[in-house]
């Protein structure tokens, strides 16, 4: 399973990352090497092994349904702030 430029571009689009064309070549090269090493896992027989998603699973902690208001100032960090809202450019492309 080697990474093609098309795969890379698909991933860049999914992850919303703009990358210069010459950088793409470098990434493709580096990621191909990395994935090659990753593929050593592919050769292992892991049939019947349960996957772990967590370091350790202690009991579930549930929060009581009690309102706790916290005043956060949003405006200071917001790139664009208008009418008490975050302003974003148009959602549909022309």
């Amino acid at each position: 399973m080697s990474l093609t430029m098309k795969d890379l571009e698909q991933v860049l689009s999914l992850a919303n990352l703009d990358v210069e064309p010459h950088e793409k070549e470098i990434y493709l090269d580096q990621l191909t090497n990395i994935l090659e090493q990753m593929e050593t896992l592919g050769k292992l027989d892991l049939e019947g092994v349960k996957p772990s998603a967590y370091a350790c699973e202690h009991s579930t902690f549930l929060r009581e349904d009690i309102v706790k208001q916290s005043a956060v100032s949003l405006e200071k960090n917001a790139p664009e702030w208008e009418l008490n809202s975050f302003r974003v450019p148009k959602i549909l492309a022309d």
């Binding site: 208008e82 809202s85 975050f86 302003r87 974003v88 148009k90 959602i91």
Partner: peptide, 12 residues
């Protein structure tokens, strides 16, 4: 509507 909008505001 979303189609003709110049920009949008986000309320969370």
């Amino acid at each position: 509507s979303i189609a003709g909008a110049d920009y949008s505001l986000v309320d969370l």
